[in-house]
Computed example of a mutant assay.
Amino acid sequence: MTTSITLEPGVSLQPVQAECPHCACCSAALCRKGRASVLGCAGCTRADLRATVSRCPCSASLTEGTAAWRAGMVAATLAATELPLSTPLENLLRALADGAETVTDPHGLLVALRLREFVQTRGGLLAVTCFGRAYLAARDGGASSSGPA
């Protein structure tokens, strides 16, 4: 028995794409494109599917080696050298980087550090990201230990 499919003119079938081995939201081909783009997987897909892939870990800015990660490291270093944080913000970032278990933030400064992705919450605790560490290393005149040389 032969099954035939009739398509309307101008309509074509998309070939099935291999699933990404690292996430459940994308195809392997999309994640390859997303890792190479500062826009990530969401920026490489149709508008109606962006919500599905918007948090893909394969192309996330904090995933080492992605184009978005490289751009973030450059931005953190440039911020350190060209437009440093205010003294209270930098002191707060340094306290967190030095392992302070509790920090006082009476003026809501953590929001600015979160927006720059210098800190994030991991396991219910605040942690300095690779971007925050790159910023501090550049401020101190050294190279960041996070990432390739």
Rank of each mutant, 00 (worst) to 15 (best):
C26N: 05
A60M: 08
L109H: 02
A149K: 05
T104Q: 15
I5G: 11
A112I: 01
V38F: 01
A28D: 12
S12W: 02
R133T: 10
G99H: 02
A97W: 00
A137D: 01
G108N: 00
A28R: 03
G147F: 06
L115W: 04
A134R: 00
A18L: 13
R70L: 11
A79G: 09
L83Y: 11
L110C: 13
Y135T: 00
T87S: 15
Q14W: 01
G142Q: 10
A18Q: 14
A42K: 06
T66Q: 03
D48L: 10
S54Y: 03
W69N: 11
A24L: 14
A100S: 07
G34R: 07
A75V: 03
R114A: 10
T121Y: 13
A24T: 15
W69I: 10
G123Q: 10
A137G: 04
R122G: 13
S146F: 11
S27H: 10
M73W: 03
T63V: 07
L89H: 10
S12V: 10
L7G: 09
R70D: 13
L115S: 05
S145C: 03
T81V: 07
S145N: 05
A24K: 10
C23H: 12
G99Q: 06
A67P: 00
T52I: 14
L13R: 12
R50F: 07
A134M: 02
F118E: 04
T102R: 14
A79W: 00
G141V: 13
D98S: 15
